[in-house]
């Protein structure tokens, strides 16, 4: 129950970030995948099953806020969430540099899955947002690693326990 509450709080925080991005620079929505960051944040703390379920919810939320086929982002995020949980259980990704690489590769993986599904379903070129989407792994990894490092530092300084 506690985990679900935390995930819901993280999703609300993601909505706040998303709204701020849309307000100040709409193009940034293509560069930073805020909903994926929620999944990667929990991947460090939880197992692959929790991350896959969370990935599915985040993906379906993304699809519900879009015009495309319902479930495409859901599958991409489920797989990336599962992979994130699986990797984070086996490799220490807590340091900022490793965390950057971790998010970078998983966002790339998610983007590839999403592009393949899109190409398969629509037989069309992927919408690249004037090429900005190709910067998504870099933008998401940069912001994500900084944010997770900041949260970890705050948790350490205030002595807030981790699972």
């Amino acid at each position: 129950m506690r985990d679900i509450t935390r995930a819901a709080a993280a999703l609300c925080f993601a909505f706040v970030c998303l709204t701020l991005l849309e307000r100040f620079n709409p193009a940034a929505v293509h560069v930073i995948n805020v909903l994926s960051l929620v999944v990667f944040y929990f991947a460090i703390r939880k197992d692959e099953v929790f991350c896959a379920v969370l990935g599915m919810f985040c993906g379906l939320i993304q699809d519900s806020l879009s015009m495309g086929v319902f479930g495409v982002s859901g599958i991409a995020k489920t797989l990336s969430g599962f992979a994130a949980g699986f990797i984070a259980r086996r490799i220490n990704v807590l340091s900022i540099r490793r965390n950057f690489l971790f998010i970078f590769f998983l966002t790339t993986f998610e983007l590839v899955i999403w592009a393949l599904l899109h190409a398969f379903l629509f037989s069309d070129t992927i919408p690249s947002g004037r090429g900005l989407i190709f910067f998504q792994p870099l933008g998401t990894a940069f912001c994500g690693s900084l944010l997770i490092h900041l949260i970890n530092t705050i948790q350490k300084s205030f002595g807030i326990g981790r699972d």
Partner: peptide, 12 residues
């Protein structure tokens, strides 16, 4: 406007 299209902001 309360939200852009997260998969392709040029759609909706």
């Amino acid at each position: 406007v309360i939200g852009l299209d997260l998969n392709n902001s040029f759609r909706s």
